[in-house]
């Protein structure tokens, strides 16, 4: 666990003033979830992704999405080898441990769904053959929140595939000063010493699954889910998948907090990043903060 803490600290040195977001991102990865970062360009999304890859010693691929990208550009293609007279797989960039999918909303829906399917199933099917993706496999996708011409915002159903959506936002004045003083930190991110080996990371991920969630805690989570459905605040309530995701994220958060059991605070900490992109407020309701209202409405202990 110390190593994970050390990893958090190291990432904090290259992504300044964003400890909360770093912690969430790491929790998301530890919970085997994919991460969507929604931010304007230049906020350090890529730096964060680089740092995460380095610190956990993961294979890393970056794909800049464009509108003319085809599914094969991501997944790969099986080619006919004239010498051996058989098909060989030319693997796409998706065959990696950490994939940074930059500006995913620039790709056509077809390409998007190819990637999202691979994310969900953790395998790629080409011409009827199935190829498993490496383990672990994370996608950190970034999306530009401002609607621009030629973008295809991810549909709601596919947003569900991301465990969390976070945004970094502008740095605080102190962090910005530090940033200016330090210069470009992207290079440093690439030079970070790994804090954990892949095996160690896998162990931590297994430990996450062992974190205890008591009946009372599950009851609280269930009441939150139910309230999202019955309160009338949202067009559609949270799905069972969202509930499971929330539990996994809360477990990882608890582990990061040095506990082997989940407390309601863990749920509260991960609720907004896990749920906000899955909830559509009813007409007239503000999109942001809707998940927060959920927290206020449901008592922790009935």
């Amino acid at each position: 666990m110390e190593k994970v803490q050390r990893a958090l600290a190291r990432v904090g040195k290259v992504v300044l003033g964003k400890n909360e977001q770093i912690r969430l991102a790491v929790a998301c990865l530890l919970a085997r979830g994919h991460l969507l970062i929604e931010d304007l360009p230049g906020m350090g999304k890529t730096t964060l992704a680089h740092a995460l890859a380095r610190i956990f010693s993961l294979d890393y691929q970056r794909v800049q999405f464009t509108s003319d990208m085809l599914p094969a550009d991501i997944l790969g293609v099986s080619l006919f080898n004239a010498d051996t007279r058989e098909f060989v797989l030319r693997k796409g960039p998706v065959f990696t441990q950490l994939l940074l999918a930059d500006e995913i909303n620039r790709a056509t829906p077809k390409t998007q769904s190819a990637l999202l399917e691979a994310m969900e199933e953790r395998q790629v099917t080409l011409d009827g053959d199935t190829y498993p993706l490496p383990l672990p496999f994370f996608v950190v996708a970034t999306q530009n929140p401002v609607e621009q011409g030629g973008t295809f915002p991810l549909p709601e159903s596919q947003l569900d595939r991301f465990l969390m959506r976070i945004s970094l936002g502008y740095p605080s004045p102190e962090a910005e000063l530090a940033l200016l003083a330090a210069g470009d930190l992207r290079a440093e991110a690439l030079d970070l010493t790994p804090a954990l080996t892949v095996d160690e990371l896998q162990q931590v991920m297994q430990a996450v699954e062992q974190v205890h969630a008591s009946t009372d805690l599950l009851g609280y989570l269930q009441r939150l889910l139910e309230h999202s459905r019955s309160s009338g605040l949202f067009q559609a309530g949270l799905s069972p998948r969202a509930g499971l995701g929330m539990l996994r994220a809360a477990r990882a958060w608890a582990l990061l907090g040095g506990r082997n059991y989940v407390i309601p605070e863990d749920i509260q900490a991960v609720l907004v990043p896990v749920c906000e992109h899955r909830l559509q407020p009813v007409a007239g309701g503000a999109a942001r903060g809707a998940a927060g209202r959920l927290l206020e409405a449901v008592p922790v202990v009935p």
């Binding site: 927290l295 206020e296 008592p299």
Partner: peptide, 9 residues
């Protein structure tokens, strides 16, 4: 004290 307070808070 509000209703949504977990024990620690």
């Amino acid at each position: 004290l509000s209703d949504d307070l977990p024990p620690r808070r």
